[in-house]
Simulated scan of single mutants.
Amino acid sequence: MDLDDDDFEMPSRTSPHFRFRNTPKKKHEEDLVNHTGTEKRPLKRRKTGAHNANRLVIYSEIRKLGQNIGFKCSPHLLFDLLKTLDIDQRKCFDELGFGILLSMPNCRLPKDLTVWLVNHFSWKKQALTVRGRTVPIKLLMKKLLGIPDGPFPVPLPRSKRGKSKCIYPTEEDKEMKDEKGARGLSYKATYESLISTHDPVQFKRSFMLYVLCIYFAPSSGHFINLGYSPVMSNVDLIKDMNWRDHVANVLIEGIREYRDSKAVNVNIHGCVHVLLLIYIDMVKSPILEVPGGCPRVLYVTTDLLDLLDLSDLKSSSCDGPEYGKL
């Protein structure tokens, strides 16, 4: 569409718009009163592009220098749970298809090294890029965790904000929601009820919700995710679901959300433990002797990760630590 000069009408000198444009700011403000004739309201300045640009710079600096980054993936909590189970409960765990994890050692994740690996993960490529290599994670999940990769995908309703939403809540879900403001029970409260449960179906359902909360698919806080309730409605199908891809997808989405976040405090969703399991096998050094065998989660301990965190640290600055010394 062409716009000629004739398409625009110049305001007359009696026009209030013309007068305001050529009137000093103070006189302009004095002429402004509301329709009731009462005292005028203070003028609000509209945010300009420069203001928005400055705000983005501030956010960028916060992220670079002051963003507090964490994660809720806690393999040590899973270890603490597994060692308290009795024979019947351990049998139930094995029937779910996760029995190999009963031999999992205690393992605490070093924060700096974990965050460094997250920052070297491309959610678009779905791969970890370090030491000149790009390693896709989905194909390695079975080798890393030994979890079921059945034919049925794990359905998880999600809202537009990426938060889990339970579409068909049970009476138990409603009770949990009312008690904890839609987030469900805390992992501590669930743990207490879990270890005292001996009904096989109830134990399997509660156990999976707990393990997803603390290890396989943790979110910003240690609260039971009610979005998984429909998945647990038939516990006999759990072993036939593709948990391998689901755990990978939750981590990939969690890292994408972390990259987009401008919050000062942010927790990375997903099982970040797998990034450490990949990286420790990439480091070839006589200092670090990692036993062979699969799944890898059975052979990587707290002591090994602490040694890796200490020995592989190349430098540390205000921008954060840099690894790759070994």
Rank of each mutant, 00 (worst) to 15 (best):
M282K: 04
G270P: 00
S229N: 12
E61D: 09
N249A: 12
R19M: 07
W123M: 01
L85I: 11
H28K: 05
F71V: 01
N68A: 00
L194N: 09
H120F: 04
N52C: 07
K314E: 12
G150A: 07
F98R: 07
S229M: 11
F93I: 14
F203L: 11
S229K: 10
I87K: 15
E9H: 11
Y59W: 03
V264T: 06
K239F: 09
G132F: 01
D2M: 12
V272R: 01
R108T: 11
D88H: 14
T14W: 03
K47I: 09
V231E: 10
R133Q: 11
D4Y: 13
Y191G: 01
D7N: 11
L77D: 00
G37W: 02
N234T: 14
R46G: 05
R158V: 14
I278F: 02
M1Y: 05
M1A: 12
C294T: 15
F207W: 11
V290F: 01
D88M: 13
N119H: 10
K262M: 07
K125C: 03
E171T: 15
K124C: 03
S164W: 08
C92T: 08
K239W: 09
N265P: 00
V247T: 13
S285T: 07
D260L: 11
P16M: 05
L77V: 02
V235F: 08
P105H: 08
R158K: 14
A263L: 06
N242S: 12
R244Q: 15
H35Y: 03
L96A: 08
V135Y: 04
V211C: 10
R21M: 07
M232V: 14
T38A: 11
E171V: 15
I255E: 03
G150S: 08
F93L: 15
